[in-house]
Amino acid sequence: MYDSSLGGDDTLEGGNNSIGGSVFNGLAGDALEMYDYSLGGHDTLYGGDLQAGVNGNITNYLLGDAITMYDASKGGDDVIHGGNNGNNDGTGIVENYLYGDAIEMNGSTLAVLVQDHYGKPDDHHHVSHHVEHHVEHDNGKKHGKKHVEHHVEHHVEHEDDDDDHDHNHDDDVVFINASPLGGNDILISGNNAIDHMYGDAGNALAGGEDTFVFNDEVGTFFGDDIIYDFRQSDGLHGDQIEIDFADVDFTDLVFTDDFVTGDQIITVHGDHGDHGTITLVGLAGAHLTVGHAGDPGDFDIII
């Protein structure tokens, strides 16, 4: 995807493993690569399942928007469901790699040509107004002023007119240090599976407000899962974890710091056995806040 292209709101489903052996699914909601000011759609992705009674493996790579995002591209608000293992006795392996937006995000410097009819654009508001207009999409959606201003630097190359210093009709080039921005995504753990969860991208330092969901909608054991980018700094409110099991109360959530690996592990116990573990990479010693989200057994966790 290039320029100001806009992705659709799509639903993609991976293939199941019903005969044994190995199955691989790779799904991207919008494109292989996104450039310029392209905007991803609001997509829903489902990983393939290992059917009950089948001894086999399945690997799902589920990318909300693309494999790689460049420039000032922006991911959509996607919902990604990890694949499930229909066996409750340990038979078979289901491994999900869930990326809210992309595997990689790579920034760059973009040049935007601004036709100036009002004098040299040495004012930040003047520059950002033109750049924001440049990224407007046909459906009226924008990357947003905050996203644009975040990347605008005051590098304006102006060609001086030594004769009369009249800049009224000069063209200016605004250089933007741009980097992709992730959407506000929802990642849902698969049942009896190993889920590698990235709310934004494998190398993103900031992104959207992502939600990581662990519940008993499909089964009672979600597995031993890993969240690699759980951050307070993303968006206005930061990322959050949702845990929803009918037989879980506050005392069933056990938080353990592993200062050797630098990670924090949340173990979710229940009246009928353990539901699984959630490893928060790099967050050993971090203070987590747990609150009730409404129904008994429904908890939200934030930093």
Rank of each mutant, 00 (worst) to 15 (best):
24 F>N: 14
274 D>E: 14
297 G>P: 02
247 D>C: 04
247 D>Q: 08
46 Y>I: 08
102 A>G: 07
143 H>M: 03
285 G>M: 11
92 G>K: 09
88 N>M: 13
138 D>I: 10
277 T>C: 06
1 M>N: 05
46 Y>H: 13
179 S>F: 09
123 D>Q: 14
283 L>H: 05
244 D>M: 11
142 K>Q: 05
108 S>A: 12
42 H>Q: 13
220 T>G: 10
20 G>K: 10
185 D>I: 00
272 H>L: 15
11 T>W: 09
220 T>K: 11
166 D>G: 09
90 G>R: 07
141 K>Y: 06
85 N>Y: 08
186 I>Y: 05
56 G>M: 14
282 G>M: 03
259 F>E: 13
295 D>W: 07
113 L>I: 12
215 N>K: 08
221 F>H: 14
150 H>C: 03
116 D>M: 13
11 T>C: 08
15 G>A: 12
163 D>F: 13
205 L>N: 15
201 A>E: 01
233 S>D: 10
198 Y>Q: 00
187 L>E: 00
36 D>Y: 06
116 D>C: 13
124 H>P: 15
134 H>S: 15
140 G>I: 04
263 D>R: 01
7 G>V: 01
97 Y>L: 04
66 A>Y: 01
125 H>R: 12
79 V>R: 10
176 I>F: 07
124 H>N: 15
165 H>A: 10
26 G>V: 11
197 M>N: 00
127 V>W: 00
296 P>V: 06
193 A>E: 08
293 A>F: 00
229 D>R: 03
242 E>Y: 10
229 D>G: 03
